Simulated assay, not measured.
Amino acid sequence: MPPATLKTERLILRPWRADDFDAFAAMSADPEVMEFLMAPVDRTASDANAERLKAHIETHGFGFWALEIPGVAPFIGFTGLIHVSFDAPFVPAVEIGWRLARAHWGKGYAVEAAKASLEHGFGPLGLEEIVALTVPANIRSQQVMRRIGMTRNEADDFDHPRVPEGHPLKRHVLYRVKRDVIRP
């Protein structure tokens, strides 16, 4: 399947390019952007993460797409869909996610791009359900999840298997949305 590129009123969700890696590394080193992830990462780890995200798109035709504001900013973060790659009660699953550079927070870009991702997931990809996950303290992401029609059942919350025991980010909340709720 050739990699998809999605367009919204203000954004382009596209495959990653080599020139995205510098901006992604700056985002990945920002303590505020990484607050609810394990920790800021160095350039080597950031590049490895970007390569994995790029490879997912090349393999599956979708993934966490690079997010661009045409004519304004060539890379502001990522948004999209990715196969969950760890073991949990809700797996197998496709997750929707986003991460934006701080300068682009609060402008509705995450919601706009996430809605386009859902439409693609339930439309061309034919998915029946899409999940989202974060830590309980990440209220901003949970607000995006609700704005795009996702709901949470506290019984689905889980301990993330890739987070060490005793770590404050171990517990995660799970949001879901089914195809029949969001019609493409």
Rank of each mutant, 00 (worst) to 15 (best):
Glu95Pro: 02
Met38Thr: 13
Met150Ile: 10
Met150Tyr: 09
Ile12Gly: 00
Asp156Ser: 01
Gly71His: 06
Ala132Gln: 11
Lys170Arg: 14
Lys107His: 09
Ile148Leu: 14
His56Tyr: 09
Phe64Thr: 08
Phe90Ser: 06
Leu81Arg: 05
Ala101Val: 00
Ala132Trp: 11
Ala155Trp: 01
Pro168Leu: 04
Phe24Gln: 12
Arg17Ile: 04
Thr79Glu: 06
Pro70Gly: 05
Asp180Gly: 04
Ala4Trp: 11
Gly166Gln: 05
Asn49Gly: 00
Thr59Pro: 08
Arg17His: 12
Asp156Tyr: 00
Ala66Asn: 06
Gly126Cys: 07
Glu129Gly: 01
Leu67Gln: 02
Ala66Gly: 07
Lys54Tyr: 03
Leu174Tyr: 05
Phe62Ala: 14
Ala93Asn: 07
Arg147Cys: 14
Val131His: 14
Leu174Pro: 08
Arg162Ser: 07
Pro3Arg: 09
Leu11Asp: 05
Val84Gln: 11
Glu165Arg: 06
Pro92Met: 02
Gly166Met: 08
Arg14Phe: 08
Ala137Asp: 15
Leu118Arg: 02
Ala18His: 01
Val33Lys: 04
Glu68Lys: 04
Ala25Tyr: 11
Ala55Gly: 10
Lys54Ser: 15
Pro89Met: 00
Pro70Asn: 04
Ser28Gly: 14
Pro3Ile: 09
Arg146Ser: 13
Leu11Lys: 09
Arg99Ala: 04
Glu51Met: 04
Ala110Cys: 08
Asp47Cys: 00
Ala110Tyr: 08
Phe64Glu: 13
Thr151Ile: 11
Thr134Arg: 10
Asp22Arg: 10
Ala66Lys: 04
Gly166Glu: 06
Val181Tyr: 01
Ile69Cys: 05
Ile182Trp: 11
Thr44Trp: 00
Leu174Asp: 01
Phe36Val: 05
His60Tyr: 14
Gln143Trp: 07
Thr151Gln: 10
Ser141Pro: 12
Ala29Pro: 13
Gln142Thr: 09
Asp159Asn: 07
Lys170Tyr: 04
Leu6Gly: 15
Ala50Asn: 01
Thr134Cys: 15
Met34His: 03
His120Cys: 04
Asn138Arg: 02
Phe86Lys: 07
Gly108Ser: 03
Thr151Gly: 07
Ala23Val: 10
Trp65Ser: 14
Phe36Thr: 03
Glu154Ile: 10
Ala23Gly: 14
Lys54Gly: 03
Lys115Asp: 05
Arg179Gly: 08
Val111Ile: 11
Ile82Trp: 12
Glu112Leu: 09
Asp20Asn: 03
Val181Ile: 09
Arg171Glu: 08
Thr44Gly: 00
Val181Asp: 05
Phe78Trp: 14
Ala155Tyr: 00
Lys54Asp: 14
Leu11Val: 10
Asp87Trp: 03
Gly123Cys: 12
His83Arg: 14
Asp19Cys: 06
Val72Arg: 03
Arg183Val: 12
Pro15Ile: 02
Pro168Tyr: 03
His120Tyr: 15
Pro124Lys: 02
Ala4Gly: 12
Ile130Tyr: 11
Met34Ala: 07
Arg147Ala: 15
Val84Met: 09
Gly166Phe: 11
Ala26Ile: 13
Pro184Thr: 00
His167Pro: 08
Val111Phe: 02
His60Phe: 14
Gly61Leu: 13
Arg176Ala: 13
Gln142Lys: 15
Ala93Arg: 04
Val72Asn: 03
Arg52Ile: 10
Leu13Met: 14
Ser85Gln: 15
Leu37Tyr: 13
Lys115Ile: 09
Arg147Ile: 11
Phe78Tyr: 13
Asp87Leu: 12
Ala4Leu: 13
Ala155Leu: 11
Asp19Tyr: 00
Ala103His: 01
Met34Phe: 07
Phe90Ala: 07
Glu112Ala: 10
